[in-house]
């Protein structure tokens, strides 16, 4: 579901005009910020990076094909999270602690022993777990500078804006009820004049 197929829910942003000859440097920037798998042996809980629009496991953009026939750069932002839920971790640690204490002929482990065990169990669970993967479609119109992100989640929007701005060193501005006016050709003076407009209460008789 999204830009490629199905119903679409999305946020709109815009950037300044793209520089001349952006294709090659942008491919390099995408490669520098491509998605990297989380190593379950590490402590990393989240990884965010770019993948190809049609392949969640690759990020090989070429200057010749970076821009689609309709004049868009098509990207997907991959967000992986490998985090053991606290409830699961506690249950597995308690179970292991009971076994370890029984082996030692004791009722329970010391706090220090349990802390060490918790790390062991967490690492074991990470090795057995698959990261939770989110793929967010992103399309960037190279003529207008409009960027569409196929999500309305504030958390995803924050992650996306951060990654996009870091990757391309450009500022992303949201399309809002006010900014869309300038984008659609209204003069700054007319947009500013709107600040004098008072809120209407249509059910009430207007006075003055």
């Amino acid at each position: 579901m999204g830009i490629a197929s199905g119903n679409i829910s999305y946020l709109r942003f815009f950037t300044a005009a793209l520089p001349e000859g952006f294709e090659e440097p942008y491919c390099d920037l995408l490669a520098s910020h491509k998605f990297n798998e989380i190593d379950p042996r590490s402590e990393l809980e989240e990884s965010v990076g770019w993948v190809e629009f049609g392949d969640a496991f690759d990020c090989n953009y070429s200057p010749d094909t970076l821009v689609s026939n309709s004049g868009h750069i098509l990207l997907r932002l991959r967000i992986d999270k490998l985090k053991i839920p606290a409830v699961s971790l506690k249950a597995y640690v308690d179970q292991a602690a009971r076994g370890r204490a029984a082996e030692a002929g004791r009722d329970k482990l010391t706090k220090r022993e349990k802390d060490v065990l918790k790390l062991e169990v967490k690492n074991q669970l990470r090795m057995r777990s698959l990261p939770r993967m989110q793929l967010v479609e992103v399309v960037w119109n190279v003529s207008t500078g409009e960027v569409r992100v196929a999500s309305t989640s504030k958390a995803i929007a924050t992650t996306f804006v951060d990654k996009f701005e870091k990757t391309f060193s450009v500022q992303l501005n949201p399309v809002t009820l006010m900014t869309v006016l300038s984008l659609r050709g209204m003069s700054e003076a007319d947009v500013t004049a709107l600040s004098l407009v008072e809120e209407e209460h249509f059910h009430l008789v207007r006075h003055g």
Partner: peptide
């Protein structure tokens, strides 16, 4: 927020996936 959601586009003709996406972007 002037956010659009649940957008249902007209059916597109595009055969290949890339063409289909391009066509849907033009509709958007």
């Amino acid at each position: 927020t002037f956010t659009f959601s649940g957008v249902k586009l007209p059916s597109v003709l595009g055969g290949k996936d890339d063409n289909k996406v391009d066509e849907r972007l033009l509709l958007l």
